[in-house]
Amino acid sequence: MNDQTLFSIFFSAMVVNNFTLAMFLGLCPFMGVSARVETALRMGLANIFVLVLTSLSAWVLNTFILESVPYLRIISFIIVVASLVQIVEMAVKKLSPTLFRQLGIFLPLMTTNCAIFGLAIFQTNRGYGFFQGLTFAVGAGLGLTLALVLMASIRESVEFSDVPEIAKGTGLVLIIAGTLSMAFMGFAGLL
């Protein structure tokens, strides 16, 4: 069992080891959904929700089932993530059709989002307990949202500036991400 304090887990996951900018997890939505601040924010919030659910189910699996069959870990985690996303999708569709329309394709795409699967794996590797896992999930989710919103606001302002022809598109996004990542390195001394 890991004995890190909840506070340090939270801040480590949110800013110091930010999932997107320091560990390269969840890059697909980071590139794809970061053109508008509003969509980025919604995507981030949906991510927090799924991350918390994943953390809970990973804890249940680890404590009660995987103890005796550790080699089934990857397979069982991916099944859990896939079915979880499916359930969330159905629930959202039933409870709030408006939100369902707004999220569109990004809801089902969460199955192959490395941030979600990565959370389950990292949580297991570090031996987090129940509350530690929950804190880790919320911190990581907030970190993802922060990175997405920052990126989206930068991209919104860059849109109207005069960028060289060759830099339009992904190249520019990656260089902005590099700069953001450098800025986040400033948090390294925090813990």
């Binding site: 190249g171 990656l174 260089i175 590099g178 450098m182 390195m185």
Partner: peptide, 25 residues
């Protein structure tokens, strides 16, 4: 040192893409 840190990963791929865009143009 920056190149082996996370920021370097983004920058390297970004510059490779810029170079490819340049050649294409």
């Amino acid at each position: 040192v920056i190149m082996v840190l996370p920021a370097g990963g983004f920058l390297t791929l970004g510059f490779i893409l810029l170079a490819m865009g340049f050649v294409e143009q």
